[in-house]
Nucleic acid binder design. Sequence first.
DNA 1: GAGTGTGAAAACATTCACAGCT
DNA 2: AGCTGTGAATGTTTTCACACTC
Lengths: 214, 214
Amino acid sequence: MKEIKKIPPATVKRLPLYLQCLDQVDQDAIGISSKKLAEIAKVNDAQVRRDLSYLGTLGTRGVGYDVSTLRNQLQLELGLVEGWSAVIVGVGNLGSALAHYGGFKDKGFGVVGLFDDDSKKINSQVAGLVVKPLSDLQDYCNKFNVAIGIIATPGEFAQSVADELINCGVRSILNFAPVLLKNVKDVQIRSVDLSQELQILSYYLDRPILKAVD
Amino acid sequence: MKEIKKIPPATVKRLPLYLQCLDQVDQDAIGISSKKLAEIAKVNDAQVRRDLSYLGTLGTRGVGYDVSTLRNQLQLELGLVEGWSAVIVGVGNLGSALAHYGGFKDKGFGVVGLFDDDSKKINSQVAGLVVKPLSDLQDYCNKFNVAIGIIATPGEFAQSVADELINCGVRSILNFAPVLLKNVKDVQIRSVDLSQELQILSYYLDRPILKAVD
DNA sequence: GAGTGTGAAAACATTCACAGCT
DNA sequence: AGCTGTGAATGTTTTCACACTC
């Protein structure tokens, strides 16, 4: 019988943060306490312990957590060891930034394709990959079993690109275009809207006393 | 006596979303119901009503919300009418993407300066602005009363740029570098880490049944 | 002594369901 | 009839506090 553990969404959102904290800790540190981790991540230490307890019994009472075991478990739980393939659609400044973004390779994602329908960009090289026209998308997805589509096009193309990606069998989409994509069953869509982040900051600019979320 | 209304952080995070929904609604629509708005924003309709009720009594029973009143109130509440000035530090692909990002101007932010310490970039033009060296930052901040600093440098420079911005009197920072910045009293810091977003997606890739947060 | 893992409490957020206005 | 605004119910997240282990 398969064991099913449900991790609360609020916790899932913090797991990548903990992973990042481990990179920022002393290179030669072998163990770390919830107190120390909490300090780096800027959260409560009970929170850290509760979050990590969802992954199993990882720590040792009276001692703390072993850094490398912890890292492995976080990566395992987040599915970062499966080597998911991703494509980026839209190779403007943002798409290029994403293609160059080293963080992805280290973190277990491989960008296997760049797509754009601007003829000036097609066949040019960005971050070691050749930009292809969207008509090649289907082939790529089949060949590399692409799991994740990253949309970095202007807003007006985002929905049709999303439709196309889903049509190619992509089940997870990270959208950077400032539009609301339609929901499709069984497809996970996350949107990052740069201007929304600024707007939230703006709210708290007027109200320096209040504590923001996240 | 000044009226103090405290808007829950979870609601603040949705206000920019509602604003975006209004842009996506029929241009000639004069009124909108919580039900319709909820559908576009993909949230529960009671949620919409509760959220908007924090801004005052904006709707009309039996009728709905007036689109333009609603937009005005949202902008007012988010502080988007104050015309905050922002600077971008780091003019690589990501910084350029941000500089070109039209959303900001429309949404009440003015990018008044671009800064980079790469001599190849200094004095070049990006999105109609001349890239300046970091040594000019203090002057700019005084001259334009800069409220927001956007960090788009590689990780290794992010903390020192943040220190410098804070030193120049900037009280709000939006950080795109994949590092955890130190907290400073009275300074709001929001971080957007592109690879963290992908990692969250990755978790749900393995578990198509679960519902993600946000 | 130091630091985890976790019940129980407290705080926060969402949703229901309906009274009240147009 | 239609739709808001909001008490009350429910669900989720955070935090406290301490028994337990090393």
